[in-house]
Design a protein around this nucleic acid. Sequence first.
DNA 1: CGCGCGCTTGATCAGCATCAATTCGCGTGG
DNA 2: CCACGCGAATTGATGCTGATCAAGCGCGCG
Lengths: 242, 242
Amino acid sequence: MNSSKFLTGRGRERLTLEEQTLLEDSSSNVQAVKARETLVRRGKPVYSSMLVTEGFVCRSASNHRGQRKMVSLHIPGDFVDLDGFKLKHLDHDVVAIGPAKVTSYSHDTLANLSERCSRLAESFWLSSLLDAAIHRAWIFRLGRLEAEGRAAHFFCELHARLEMVGLAQSASFAFPLTQSDLGATLSLTGVHTNRVLRSLRERGLLTFQNRQVEIHDRKALAKLGDVDPAYLYPTDLNTPSR
Amino acid sequence: MNSSKFLTGRGRERLTLEEQTLLEDSSSNVQAVKARETLVRRGKPVYSSMLVTEGFVCRSASNHRGQRKMVSLHIPGDFVDLDGFKLKHLDHDVVAIGPAKVTSYSHDTLANLSERCSRLAESFWLSSLLDAAIHRAWIFRLGRLEAEGRAAHFFCELHARLEMVGLAQSASFAFPLTQSDLGATLSLTGVHTNRVLRSLRERGLLTFQNRQVEIHDRKALAKLGDVDPAYLYPTDLNTPSR
DNA sequence: CGCGCGCTTGATCAGCATCAATTCGCGTGG
DNA sequence: CCACGCGAATTGATGCTGATCAAGCGCGCG
């Protein structure tokens, strides 16, 4: 799978072929990582940032009792830790969920690229803004939805994001999380996550089994999850709106 | 109060005098807003972004039952809706908390400034990254702390941020929120917020009365709120670390 | 073959929401 | 100066959501 297919900015901001080439030629290395491998540890200085090209990567933090909490989830086409470019160390760990592939760009390279190509610089900034928008949706989800709504909202988001990069043509896609991992994402225990999933399944909305998601009733899910139709700005910013 | 005193980037990235002047000369208008006034409504197109120079401004969303949820809080020196510069409409409302003052910059101006001065462009990006970092802390707070911890974490954050821009020399500062507003921030009901505040007061950690916060035991608060000492990257990035 | 991890289900408990009523502070108008 | 009104703070009683504790099951893998 080729990273130029989806690009930074989650497919919203199309780069020219030249820009794509510039970006790809600058990648300092591509690595395959195993499931559950930690890529960056909180607080450690970082000198490069990673673009996900295959699989899922998350950022997580733990409280003093060691309970994990995922604070963000990244899919192919996402830059994971552009934060590190400016802030030099991260406030969370970066962990692969299933097996994944990431391409690293050293911060020197990124500085160079930003300077040589302002469209790339803007694309990086846009990526940060979208991250922030997604973070805000997570805040809303945690604060104002209860368990089933949270799950519904989360799967709607995931589906929409995968669609944007062409990875969810059908309503079914692979998602290599355990129920406990999903719980760490939704801030539920594994036990309760199990009950919520059963309920959604029995209501014909969604199946999540064998690390495979199948969305049966997208509309009902969106309603249950109180999803803002404008969420994630699905309209391509570079084309006139429909 | 003069916005050049704190600047974007929350005092972390010092701008030169020239850069400050450039920024200030470009402000298209300064407005005083009344308490509870809505500055931007969700979904409406935006053509300018606002820098807070006095008071507090928040971003909030509501669920289908009309319950508000604050997704972010801004203090003097923060750009509130730089998102709008790239994304053209917002996923939330922007509301003044108490009386406040904001300076607007049209997106044309911002584009211009970014082009003419790459340090300003970087400063904008940095501001977005810090917003995202704060968002992640809020996600953690909601997901992994319970009521008292959330309150403690929140007040630690607020105090630290105000200190960074020189607005909390002492351990006491004005904060014009009702208990219900605070509840919307912490995702608690007003009633429970009241009980939490009482407990913190009785334990000698913090007083929040008459819209005035007084921090009695910062260390204990930080512990209760599980605050990462590296939170918000307090070290000035432009000076060698201590 | 058995060990371990993840899934599933049941029972009990705790934290916070909800409902309800009272009090306080303060501005407003008679 | 006092009566009134209103939003905010406070306190008590009760109920729901999801955590916690506990046990059994299925299955892949060394």
